[in-house]
Design a protein around this nucleic acid. Structure first.
Lengths: 329, 329
DNA sequence: TCCAGAAACTTGAACGATCCAATCCTGCCT
DNA sequence: AGGCAGGATTGGATCGTTCAAGTTTCTGGA
């Protein structure tokens, strides 16, 4: 069987010292071109790969990034995370990092997992998806100087940390504007209970756009937990109470429910959802689309910046969503 | 700042040698009860966690399992992988392993990634999702004695390896039987082109069930690539050519298309999909449901069996799907 | 009481890379 | 000839753990 290839094997093969091989790998510029070439040839010929465990032991860095995979809640919005994770894996890969998964049922257990991952695997950084007011997780990480990025802005601006987010208000504003342009005036909004950063933001986009167009939003707004059944219920309510001709929703789940409630109305009530999930594509629902691949890439950018010793805190990134037009609006 | 807690710190604190601490962790039975207790107390008091990199260096095992996250193809079926991954992470966690993600655009690049992951991270095992005839990946891994499991049976039984799968034929059979019980006789099937193991299997369940009930399946069968538009097209064709009263589909995407094609028919044509994706739940589509969490758990079981030196090849696992009843059948 | 043998524990070495400091070439410039 | 600098070598130490071999302590039986 083939003997294990270490840095010593390469050194022998290229007739240089271990140190020089190490230099070729970690500080190529201090090695003469000719020597470097010889070493690189040896590396390729032998199929050498630096042993990460040994490297990590000396340097204390694992080139591992942790991301949480959620317990498949709704299943519809789960696909957002799914797409984000894929993008993350791809970009991290290109930057020389790998993504490690973890799960946790609640914040406390999640924080306990941080400790575990940091202690046993010496993770380099965390990517948190979704943030809320007074998030204990970001606080814990920040207290310990653990590098991390959040996909989702910090809603209470106590302590700044690197983040990437998609401008939800701009998304609902875009949706609302499209409906206005199509001649609608009674445009409703179905969203989540006030107090969630994301939800408030998305509602504001709708609200402010109507005001800017001199349309009164009073009575055209409903709140509920996320879910298809909820969306349907509230839409029926709206139809009776406010007779809207169009509705913007805070999620595709809600929009899907709304869609069921307006089936058969004449003229058809326009519906726009949020997140552009596969479900939306399937049923032809117009929806606000988040640039998830881009978001993941920017997360990795921010992280590598911090990890490569860039001490000035990087500017946050706010990406613009687009409208995926289908036949419901 | 707090000094790093190593096995030596614990040893000093518990007044024993490093090796004894190591024994408490890896072979508790050879340490006297009293001593063990003292060491465990010290571990808890200091918050010690074994450094994985150092351990790996000595033992050559990383306690890392790799799984591939796919490039979000259809997006609908992507959620199957998503749920599987979540289950995998959870069960692996319980067994002391963690899941590392990777991506690859094609088989060749995927195999190259295997080499990289094995070389630099010394991964313990791979979990492959989906298998096909003559899969080069399983061959590569088997040739090198790399432990792996597949979620999906090996369709050409050349070389046996541990696998877990869901009995697709049983799923479509169950769906077909339900339709028969409901009085249907002209039950169609929309599936994938012959030659894919999974597709052939699912078709066989429908086909054999009809034969067993003395119903002639001739002319009631169509094949196509996966997709909503495709499903709709073929269903329209079937309606004209064969006048079915019900249809079983090889995927939810196809079923969703079929559903659009039969909208408005009287009496309504029953439709059953496959995979019980969120989309199916959303639109009320009856669908065959795979026990993905269970499948993931069994994958981990098989792997830990192999990794813990169990040399006899473990028996494959074939799980039974169930029918998620909704209002389309 | 003594000894064999097991049980319990301890001590050096090794895993593969990086870091560090001292040293040695070799060629170039003054 | 002497000084200098870039490039490469050398040897040793280090990271935290486990392995292999060694030493001490305990136990029971003659």
């Amino acid at each position: 069987m083939p003997e294990k290839v270490t840095i010593a094997t390469v050194a022998r093969h290229a007739r240089v010292s271990r140190q020089t091989v190490s230099n070729v790998l970690n500080a190529p510029h201090i090695v003469r071109q000719e020597t470097r070439q010889r070493v690189e040839d040896a590396i390729n010929a032998l199929g050498y790969r630096a042993n990460q465990a040994a490297r990590q032991m000396r340097t204390g860095r694992s080139r591992l990034i942790a991301a949480r995979i959620e317990p498949t809640r709704d299943g519809i919005n789960g696909s957002v995370l799914d797409r984000f994770l894929h993008g993350l894996t791809e970009t991290a890969d290109a930057a020389g990092y790998r993504v490690l998964l973890y799960t946790a049922p609640d914040d406390d257990r999640e924080i306990a997992t941080y400790g575990d991952l940091l202690g046993t695997y010496e993770l380099d950084a965390f990517v948190l998806v979704g943030t809320k007011y007074g998030d204990p997780r970001t606080e814990w990480l920040a207290d310990r100087d653990v590098p991390f990025v959040t996909f989702g802005r910090p809603w209470d601006a106590l302590d700044a940390h690197p983040w990437v987010d998609v401008d939800g208000a701009a998304g609902t504003a875009q949706a609302t504007r499209r409906l206005l342009d199509a001649g609608h005036r009674r445009i409703a909004f179905i969203g989540w209970p006030a107090g969630s950063g994301v939800g408030d933001d998305r509602r504001a986009g709708w609200h402010d756009t109507l005001l800017a167009a001199d349309v009164d939003p009073t009575g055209l707004h409903r709140e509920t937990e996320d879910g298809i059944a909820e969306g349907e219920r509230l839409m029926r309510d709206l139809l009776v109470a406010a007779a809207p001709t169009a509705v913007v929703c805070a999620s595709d789940s809600l929009a899907l429910g709304a869609l069921q409630a307006v089936r058969g109305t004449e003229p058809p009530v326009s519906v726009i959802g949020f997140d552009d999930t596969p479900v939306a594509a399937a049923v032809g629902l117009t929806s606000v689309s988040q640039p998830l691949g881009e978001a993941a890439a920017r997360c990795v950018d921010l992280l590598t910046g911090v990890l490569d010793g860039n001490h000035e805190s990087p500017p946050p990134v706010l990406l613009q969503p687009s409208l995926a037009l289908r036949h419901t609006a």
